[in-house]
Simulated assay, not measured.
Amino acid sequence: MTAPPPPRRLGLTGSIGAGKSTVAALLRAWGLTVLDADEQAREVTRDPAVLTEIAAAFPGVLRGGELDRAALAAEVFGDPQRLAVLNAITHPRVRARMEALEREAAERGEPWVVQDIPLLFEGGLAGHMNAVLVVDAPLTLRVARVMARSGLTEAEVMARDARQMPAEEKRRRATVVLENHGDLEALEAQVDGALKRLGIQPPVACDQQEESPGPG
């Protein structure tokens, strides 16, 4: 039996606090499958075998047999070599999970999937996408959002933002930029417009078309 063709990939990314998760929810509501790299990374780090490797490389980051994510983040933040060690443990497993989920979408006949990847450009993954949506908002607004939800200080948020590719460069590389500085309705309209521009149809549209009576 011939394997179904792989779906086209719509990359989704944005700087910290831009509102990428909100856009991901809108894309799911549209009917698209969204593969969340962060969610898959969390699943990977629940695997006892992975936890054993992480504990060996980063002593003290397990609490009661579970990963202390804040402690691990403190270990790797600002240290490229330590971060590379962690990525070598987790990234191959995350990629394998994303690929498996993509195959499942292909078997369902889905022509597109969304790859929600915070560091899409930084990780050199943009070339694997057929199109890329970048969510953006003014820096002051992004910082305020992150401070409100996380308890981080302004300096801590700015330090994290500085570790990412500048928002201006992400905008330059995007297929479509979504401006998230207004209300949800305005953002939803932009998402709808972007998908139509890319020729992506919601799955329900096909069903409705099939059920619609013909002329006469």
Results as ranks from 00 to 15, higher is better:
residue 1 M to S: 14
residue 7 P to Y: 08
residue 7 P to H: 07
residue 7 P to N: 07
residue 11 G to V: 04
residue 13 T to Y: 01
residue 13 T to S: 09
residue 15 S to W: 01
residue 16 I to D: 06
residue 16 I to K: 03
residue 20 K to F: 00
residue 22 T to H: 02
residue 23 V to T: 03
residue 24 A to R: 01
residue 28 R to L: 05
residue 29 A to Q: 12
residue 29 A to K: 01
residue 29 A to F: 00
residue 31 G to I: 02
residue 35 L to R: 02
residue 38 D to W: 05
residue 39 E to V: 07
residue 43 E to N: 11
residue 45 T to R: 14
residue 47 D to V: 08
residue 50 V to Y: 12
residue 52 T to N: 13
residue 52 T to M: 13
residue 53 E to T: 11
residue 54 I to L: 15
residue 58 F to T: 08
residue 58 F to G: 11
residue 60 G to T: 04
residue 66 E to C: 13
residue 68 D to P: 03
residue 70 A to S: 14
residue 72 L to S: 11
residue 73 A to F: 10
residue 75 E to G: 03
residue 77 F to K: 03
residue 77 F to T: 09
residue 79 D to S: 09
residue 80 P to S: 09
residue 81 Q to K: 09
residue 82 R to D: 10
residue 84 A to D: 11
residue 86 L to E: 07
residue 86 L to V: 03
residue 91 H to G: 01
residue 91 H to L: 05
residue 94 V to H: 08
residue 97 R to F: 11
residue 98 M to C: 08
residue 100 A to Q: 15
residue 101 L to I: 02
residue 103 R to C: 12
residue 108 R to C: 08
residue 108 R to V: 05
residue 109 G to Q: 09
residue 114 V to R: 02
residue 118 P to G: 00
residue 119 L to G: 05
residue 124 G to D: 04
residue 125 L to V: 00
residue 126 A to W: 01
residue 127 G to T: 00
residue 129 M to N: 01
residue 132 V to W: 01
residue 135 V to L: 03
residue 139 L to H: 04
residue 141 L to R: 12
residue 146 V to L: 12
residue 146 V to H: 13
residue 147 M to K: 12
residue 149 R to N: 11
residue 149 R to D: 14
residue 152 L to I: 05
residue 152 L to N: 11
residue 154 E to R: 15
residue 154 E to M: 04
residue 157 V to R: 12
residue 158 M to G: 05
residue 171 R to Y: 04
residue 172 R to C: 02
residue 172 R to W: 01
residue 172 R to A: 15
residue 176 V to T: 08
residue 177 V to P: 05
residue 178 L to A: 07
residue 180 N to V: 05
residue 180 N to A: 10
residue 182 G to W: 07
residue 184 L to C: 08
residue 186 A to V: 03
residue 190 Q to W: 00
residue 193 G to V: 10
residue 193 G to N: 11
residue 195 L to F: 10
residue 197 R to P: 00
residue 198 L to C: 09
residue 198 L to E: 10
residue 200 I to N: 07
residue 203 P to G: 09
residue 203 P to Y: 10
residue 206 C to F: 13
residue 211 E to Q: 14
residue 214 G to C: 11
